[in-house]
């Protein structure tokens, strides 16, 4: 019994430490924002790494997600809903949820792991201490460019993903369901609201921040050699995926139940 309380207590203290550490890191990032012009070159490099580097992954994921969305929708429509609404359902589900969330999850896995492993290795090989010794703030030099790049590139990747997923759905609709492209596009335009696109993209800005923050925080707190780098990488991926899903619910509530709510 005592052991159980001890374990719960240690886990709770660890959680508090992580929350506190993340908030402190966020504060340091905010304070280093004024130095952003000095880090433009590094930021552009990170945008290439996070954005361009993720394109193959997003391409495959989005095409197949759109395709399966069309197949699933058609299966549920049979005999009940006219197929001219196929484009509407695929478009809505991709723009509101599938595009932003799945892009964030796959890019989050790739990017947060890569950031945590890189910064974690720098921590255990004393490269971050070496940077401190050169009087260079590691938050400004390492974290800020990754954070800004992720905040910018996630919405860009999501636009790309939305387009590809809808294309994937449209191809499957024509080839295997027998819905013409014209009908699909007509359905797509039905109930199309710009607010849906904006809210989907707003969510991805938050997801981008989560991905970079979790990668950097876990990378910075790495200790214990190769084992520690592995542990940090795992924590970065798990925490960013969980936080994306949890944040998604709260953002969806704020955006669709409050800000863009069309009900009376």
């Amino acid at each position: 019994m005592e052991q159980a309380f001890k374990t719960i207590g240690i886990a709770f203290l660890g959680l508090l430490q992580d929350v506190g550490g993340t908030v402190i890191l966020l504060g340091r990032i905010a304070r280093s924002l004024k130095e952003l012009p000095r880090t433009m070159k590094l930021t552009l490099f990170q945008m290439e790494q996070i954005g361009l580097g993720s394109i193959p992954l997003v391409l495959v994921t989005s095409l197949f997600v759109g395709a399966v969305a069309a197949v699933q929708a058609a299966y549920q429509f049979q005999d009940y809903v006219p197929m001219r609404f196929l484009g509407t359902v695929v478009g809505k589900s991709v723009i509101l949820e599938l595009g932003p969330v799945l892009t964030a999850l796959v890019v989050g896995g790739r990017v947060s792991a890569s950031i945590a492993a890189e910064l974690g290795t720098m921590r255990v090989t004393e490269q971050i201490d070496a940077m401190e010794m050169l009087a260079i703030d590691p938050v400004r030099y390492l974290v800020l460019p990754r954070m800004v790049a992720a905040l910018i590139m996630l919405p860009v990747l999501t636009i790309f993903s939305d387009f590809l997923a809808i294309t994937g759905g449209m191809v499957v609709a024509k080839v295997s369901i027998g819905v013409s492209t014209a009908t699909f596009v007509e359905g797509l335009r039905l109930f199309f609201y710009v607010e849906d696109v904006i809210s989907g993209l707003l969510k991805t800005v938050a997801f981008g921040g989560i991905i970079a923050l979790m990668g950097c925080y876990n990378g910075f707190r790495t200790y214990g050699g190769a084992e520690g780098v592995g542990r940090s990488t795992m924590h970065a991926v798990v925490s960013s995926c969980l936080l994306i899903l949890i944040t998604n619910y709260f953002l969806a509530t704020v955006l669709f139940r409050i800000i863009f709510y069309r009900g009376t």
Binding site: M122, T125, E126, Q127, D129, A130, M131, M133
Partner: peptide, 13 residues
Amino acid sequence: RFGMVFQGAALFD
């Protein structure tokens, strides 16, 4: 005012 030489050199790889 300091320079530091680290055990594993700690060069930025």
